[in-house]
Simulated scan of single mutants.
Amino acid sequence: MQTSPAHAAHHEDREIETLEEFDAVVSARGTLSGFRVQAVDLTDRTRELLTTDTTGAVFLGCRMRPDAEAKTRADGALVLPPLPGLPFDPYRGHLYTPDDLFASLDKGYEETPDALAYAWFQRTRADGDIFASMLRAVHDDSMSDALDELLRGARVVGVMGGHAMARGTEEYRGAARLGRALARTGFTVATGGGPGAMEAANLGAYAAPYDDPVLDEACELLAAAPSFTPSISDWARAAFEVRTRWPKGGHSVGIPTWFYGHEPPNAFASRIAKYFANATREDGLLARCNAGVVFLPGAAGTVQEVFDNATPNYYESRGKPTPMVLVNRAHWTEKLPAWPLLRSLARERSMEARIALVDRIEEAPEALKHLLG
């Protein structure tokens, strides 16, 4: 699970998250002692488990036959078995893909793993079950661990903005072009993983490997279902139609939450770290944007993200302040005047040289480049 930076490399050397990794370790080392095996189906590896030392190993949600399980327990291994009946795997070793979360979409969004996990969350949150709370925490820590592994060495730029931005609008197309420009520059685009501005930025990164007209065509297709209300199913199907037509999209990350259950994840982030705890998700999203954040117009959630990001920049608690680019002067100085407060906070501090306000979304990549130096 999550490890401190000082021990991260050592612990990752001991993590096994796929059957291929399991086979490689058994073959090369001849022992599983001290290893952590995470959510791997080992029902066809009974012989290996019976003949390999598993002293001090940890098996998290691994399926195995009864005789293999009995032997590993006798060795002194910790075995936490899979939990039947859950719509998610709390020990999951990898981030989600859109196909994972939207499986069974042909039967309606309500039948997808994403919707079923939210329904489970609503039930268990209401009754205050400590076991369910523990499962949510384990799942979220698994997400953080997988996200750290995915983003190691990446230059990550966050794109924040409201979920209400409709497909088919010029604002949506602008956010998509921004995501494309950032991806083509070599950044990994990270968003809150939901609809609206978040989807647009992930879409832009998805379209980055294709010629420019593809993004315009994709936006036209999506405009047939402009919002996730009233039908999440129609909204999601339009996205998968785009993915089917252009199947080799670029990579980006979405980091959504089941806390906002009315808000589905978008299908254009290639990897999705979905959390139950919104506070963990918010802090983790911003903390991983090591190359800066672009803030598009949004409401309360986006305002919160501006100052969630400003706080560690102000105190330099994460080292050198990361760039912050706010887009749309009227929005951030008149409608929701976050910019004057941000500028006042930054005055005479090192973050002062790392913030910018631009009028148009097309100016954001150059402003970010300037702030990065």
Score class of each variant (00 low, 15 high):
Ala70Met: 11
Ala70Trp: 12
Ala70Gln: 10
Ala70Lys: 14
Lys71Ser: 08
Lys71Pro: 11
Lys71Gly: 08
Thr72Asp: 05
Thr72Gln: 07
Thr72Asn: 05
Thr72Lys: 01
Arg73Leu: 10
Arg73Phe: 07
Ala74Phe: 15
Ala74Thr: 13
Ala74His: 15
Ala74Met: 13
Ala74Glu: 12
Asp75Arg: 02
Asp75Pro: 05
Asp75Gln: 10
Asp75Ser: 09
Gly76Arg: 02
Gly76Gln: 09
Gly76Lys: 01
Gly76His: 01
Gly76Thr: 00
Gly76Tyr: 04
Ala77Phe: 07
Ala77Pro: 04
Ala77Cys: 08
Leu78Pro: 00
Val79Gly: 08
Val79Ala: 10
Leu80Thr: 04
Pro81His: 11
Pro81Arg: 01
Pro82Gln: 02
Pro82Met: 03
Pro82Trp: 01
Pro82Lys: 09
Leu83Val: 15
Leu83Gln: 15
Leu83Met: 15
Pro84Arg: 06
Pro84Trp: 01
Pro84Lys: 02
Gly85Pro: 06
Gly85Met: 05
Gly85Val: 02
Leu86Phe: 11
Leu86Ile: 07
Leu86Trp: 06
Pro87Asn: 09
Pro87Ile: 00
Pro87Val: 03
Pro87Tyr: 02
Phe88Ser: 12
Phe88Trp: 13
Asp89Phe: 13
Asp89Ala: 14
Asp89Val: 12
Asp89Met: 11
Pro90Ser: 07
Pro90His: 02
Pro90Trp: 03
Pro90Arg: 03
Tyr91Cys: 02
Tyr91Asn: 10
Tyr91Phe: 15
Arg92His: 00
Arg92Ala: 03
Arg92Leu: 05
Arg92Ser: 09
Gly93Val: 04
Gly93Ile: 00
Gly93Gln: 02
His94Asp: 11
His94Phe: 11
His94Arg: 11
His94Pro: 00
Leu95His: 09
Leu95Phe: 07
Leu95Pro: 04
Leu95Ala: 00
Leu95Gln: 08
Tyr96Leu: 05
Tyr96Ala: 01
Tyr96Arg: 05
Tyr96Val: 04
Thr97Asp: 12
Thr97Ile: 12
Thr97Leu: 14
Thr97Glu: 14
Thr97Trp: 12
Thr97Phe: 12
Pro98Ala: 10
Pro98Thr: 06
Pro98Met: 09
Asp99Thr: 07
Asp99Gly: 04
Asp99Tyr: 10
Asp99Ser: 08
Asp99Ala: 11
Asp100Phe: 12
Asp100Thr: 06
Asp100Leu: 00
Asp100Pro: 03
Asp100Gly: 02
Asp100Gln: 07
Leu101Tyr: 07
Leu101Pro: 08
Leu101Arg: 03
Leu101Phe: 00
Leu101Asn: 03
Phe102Lys: 04
Phe102Tyr: 15
Phe102Glu: 09
Ala103Ser: 13
Ala103Gly: 11
Ala103Arg: 14
Ala103Trp: 13
Ala103Ile: 10
Ala103Pro: 07
Ala103Lys: 14
Ala103Thr: 11
Leu105Asn: 06
Leu105Ala: 02
Leu105Ile: 05
Leu105Trp: 07
Asp106Ile: 13
Asp106Lys: 14
Asp106Asn: 15
Asp106Ala: 15
